[in-house]
Design a protein around this nucleic acid. Structure first.
Length: 566
RNA sequence: GCGCUCGUAGCUCAGCUGGAUAGAGUGUUGGCCUCCGAAGCCAAAGGUCAUGAGUUCGAAUCUCAUCGGGCGCACCA
C-alpha cells in the first residue's frame, strides 16, 4: 500500500518535472504513517522538502503534486495540511486488507526479502572463558540474538559467532587458580580467579600430584610485592612442576567454563553457528603471517624491542604494539588476524557487538582492516552499554575481580527468560539501562512483558469460546474507532520490523508490540466480540486473530514466548 | 588533560537521517466488573527537551561552547 503511494507520488513529481515546475525527482521520497488519525493514514513532507527547488511556497507545490496524482481506488481522499504536508486517507478496504494478508501468511507475516543474497557475520558476547557469564554479558547476548532474528526476518543470511579468547595469559591465570584450589592451599594470589566456580572445576581434578608452587616466587601485592610478577612466577612454576599435567588442568578449566557458557546461552535462546578459537589463529600461523603482511606493506616499525603497527596513519590516536619485546603477540595481533580471516570468508557485512567500554578499540581494528586492503565500511561495530541491576530500589553492587557478580543464569532463574530477553532489548543498546529485578519479576500491569503476553492470551481465550460457522466475514464492518486504530497499527508492522532490523534497534519492535497490545486492550474493553450477528462476530474475530498473529511473530523475534494462557 | 557517549514529566525511558499541539509506562488523583480473562480499560494532573549561542521557512533532533554523569586513553586480555 505504501509502495503504491510511493509510485503515485513519483509519477506526479515526474510530470511536474516535464512541466518545468521541478528540476528533478528526488530518490528519497518519504511517506510516514500518520501519528494522528485526523491526519489520515499516511503523510508525506515532500512538498516541504522540494519547495526550495520549485521556488514556490510548500502549500502551492503540494496542491500541484496532488493535482497530478493519478486516480486510485485505494485512496479515499487527500488533504494538504499544516505547512504543506500531504495527508492520504486510504479507503477502508485498502486498510483492512492487511488482516487477510496476516491470516494467510501467518508465521511468515512481516518477513521480506530486503536483504536477500546478502550474508552477514554477527559476532557477539565473546566473553573471556574465565568464568560464567554475568548480567552485563546477558544484555549483549539478548541484543545480538535479537538483531540476528530481525535481520533474518528481512531476508539476510546471518551467521552468529562467538570468539573464544582461549589463548594468552588470562587462561594461564585461570588454570593456575584451579590448581591452587585443587591443592587446597590457604595462600591465594591477589590476581587469581577467586569465584566459587573455580572450586567446582578443581573438584573434577584427580590423580595429579600436589606441588608447592609458591616455592621461590616473588612477593604478592599484599606482601608488598608486584601482583603481576607474583602470578607470572606461579604460572611458570606450575608449568615446570606439572609438565604434561598442566595441559590437563588447563583444558579441564577452559572446557568446564566454556561448556557452562554454551549451556547458559542455549537456554537463553541464543544460538551460535560457530565458536571461533583464538588459539586456532596461533596454531594455523595466521597471527604470524598477518603481522608479516603488515610488515611487508610497511605499516610496522620497531621501537624499544617491540613491533608497532602505525595505526595513526589510519586515524587512530596512538600507534599500537602487535609484538611485545618478549616476542609474544598481543591480543590486538590476534584480533587483526581474526578480522582478516572474517573478511576472507566473503561476507557482505561483518558486525561486531562489543561492550561500550571497548569503544577505544574501534579505530585500531578498522585501521588494521584498511591496512590489509579491505573495506572498513563493511565492518560495523555496535556498542552495548552496561546494565545496572536494582533490587528493592537499591543498586546491586557488582565487581568482577572479587567474584561478587550476578550471573546470567541467576538472573534467568530469578526473572525468567522471557522477562530477561524483553527487558534487555527494551532500551536502546548504547543507552545505559537500569534493570529493575522486582519489576521484571512482577506479574502485574507494571510489567510490559506480561502486558503483551496477556493480550495474546486474552485473544486465545476469546477464540476458544467461539462456536458456530465462521465463514461469513465482511471486513468493511470493522469501522468503529477502536477497530480503525487497531487496523492502522497492524498496517505499520512491516515497516516497524524493517526499520528495527536495518537500524539494529530491537527496542523499536518492543515498543510497537506494547502499543499494539494497548490498542487491543482498549478494543477489548470497548467492543464485544462474541455478538449475535455472525458476520460481525466473524469479522471481529478475524481482526483479533490477526493481532494475535502479529504479537506472536513479533515476540518470537524478540525471543519471548506468546502463551495461550497464563 | 585528550577522545567517545549520554543529559526529555517525580521515576524509568521513547522520539533524534530537521517538520504539524513533545509521547509512553510507572507513580499521584478520580472513575469502570449482572458482560468474551480487572495481569485490563477510561479520565485528570504533571515539561525552561541540562544551559547559552548559531544554521534554517521550521531545531528535542544539525553545529559550536559551557555545565553535569558514564566510559576509554598498557609492550592486559
Amino acid at each position: 500500500m505504501k509502495e503504491q503511494l510511493h509510485a503515485l507520488l513519483q509519477q506526479s513529481l515526474a510530470s511536474l518535472v516535464v512541466d518545468g515546475v521541478l528540476s528533478e525527482v528526488p530518490d528519497n521520497i518519504r511517506i510516514d504513517h500518520s501519528k494522528d488519525k485526523t491526519q489520515g493514514d499516511f503523510a508525506s513532507n515532500i512538498a516541504l522538502v522540494l519547495s526550495k527547488q520549485a521556488k514556490c511556497a510548500p502549500k502551492v507545490l503540494a496542491e500541484k503534486i496532488v493535482a497530478n496524482l493519478a486516480d486510485s481506488t485505494e485512496i479515499e481522499k487527500t488533504e494538504i495540511a499544516g505547512p504543506g504536508f500531504i495527508n492520504f486517507f486510504m479507503s477502508q478496504g485498502s486498510n483492512s486488507s492487511v488482516i487477510d494478508q496476516i491470516i494467510d501468511q501467518s508465521n511468515e507475516y512481516g518477513m521480506s526479502d530486503f536483504g536477500v543474497n546478502q550474508r552477514v557475520l554477527l559476532e557477539f558476547v565473546s566473553a573471556n572463558p574465565t568464568g560464567p557469564l554475568h548480567v552485563g554479558h546477558g544484555r549483549g547476548a539478548a541484543y545480538g540474538a535479537t538483531v540476528a532474528n530481525l535481520l533474518r526476518a528481512i531476508g539476510f543470511e546471518v551467521d552468529n559467532e562467538y570468539y573464544v579468547n582461549d589463548a594468552g595469559r588470562q587462561m594461564d591465570i585461570l588454570a593456575t587458580s584451579v590448581y591452587l584450589r585443587y591443592i587446597e592451599t590457604d595462600k591465594f594470589p591477589d590476581n587469581g580467579y577467586k569465584g566459587s566456580y573455580i572450586f567446582d572445576i578443581a573438584k573434577q581434578v584427580n590423580g595429579i600430584e600436589k606441588f608447592d608452587i609458591f616455592d621461590g616466587v616473588s612477593a604478592d601485592e599484599k606482601d608488598g610485592g608486584d601482583k603481576e610478577k607474583h602470578i607470572d612466577d606461579l604460572i611458570a612454576n606450575c608449568k615446570v612442576l606439572l609438565g604434561d599435567d598442566y595441559k590437563t588442568i588447563f583444558d579441564l578449566a577452559i572446557d568446564g567454563i566454556l561448556s557452562g557458557i554454551k549451556t547458559d546461552l542455549a537456554e537463553f535462546g541464543v544460538d551460535y553457528k560457530q565458536w571461533f578459537s583464538e588459539q586456532s589463529l596461533v596454531d594455523s600461523g595466521l597471527s604470524k603471517t598477518t603481522v608479516e603482511a603488515l610488515q611487508a606493506s610497511g605499516h610496522i616499525y620497531e621501537q624499544d624491542g617491540a613491533l608497532w603497527f602505525k595505526t595513526t596513519d589510519f586515524g587512530d590516536d596512538l600507534d599500537r604494539v602487535v609484538v611485545r619485546d618478549n616476542g609474544m603477540h598481543t591480543y590486538f595481533a590476534s584480533d587483526i588476524a581474526y578480522h582478516l580471516e572474517k573478511f576472507e570468508r566473503g561476507y557482505d557485512k561483518i558486525i561486531n557487538i562489543w561492550g561500550a567500554d571497548h569503544h577505544g578499540y574501534i579505530a585500531r581494528v578498522k585501521a588494521s582492516v584498511t591496512a590489509l586492503g579491505n573495506d572498513a565500511d563493511k565492518l560495523e561495530i555496535l556498542l552495548v552499554q552496561f546494565a545496572n541491576l536494582y533490587r528493592g530500589g537499591e543498586k546491586v553492587a557488582m565487581s568482577t575481580r572479587s567474584g561478587s557478580f550476578v550471573t546470567l543464569e541467576e538472573l534467568r532463574n530469578e526473572v525468567g527468560n522471557d522477562a530477561a530477553r524483553f527487558f534487555y532489548v527494551l532500551r536502546k543498546s548504547e543507552q545505559h539501562m537500569d534493570f529493575d529485578l522486582d519489576l521484571a519479576k512482577s506479574k502485574t500491569n507494571e510489567n510490559p512483558v506480561f502486558y503483551i503476553q496477556y493480550a495474546h492470551a486474552r485473544i486465545c481465550s476469546v477464540l476458544k469460546q467461539n462456536t458456530g460457522d465462521s465463514s461469513a466475514v465482511d471486513l468493511t464492518l470493522l469501522n468503529n474507532e477502536a477497530e480503525t486504530a487497531l487496523i492502522k497499527q497492524l498496517n505499520r508492522y512491516k515497516d516497524v520490523l524493517q526499520s528495527s532490523a536495518l537500524n539494529y534497534e530491537p527496542h523499536v519492535l518492543a515498543y510497537y508490540l506494547r502499543e499494539l497490545a494497548g490498542d487491543f486492550h482498549s478494543y477489548y474493553n470497548s467492543s464485544e466480540f462474541l455478538v449475535e450477528d455472525a458476520t460481525l462476530k466473524n469479522s471481529r474475530l478475524q481482526l483479533i486473530s490477526a493481532v494475535k498473529q502479529v504479537i506472536s511473530n513479533g515476540l518470537g523475534l524478540l525471543g519471548v514466548s506468546a502463551p495461550d494462557s497464563m
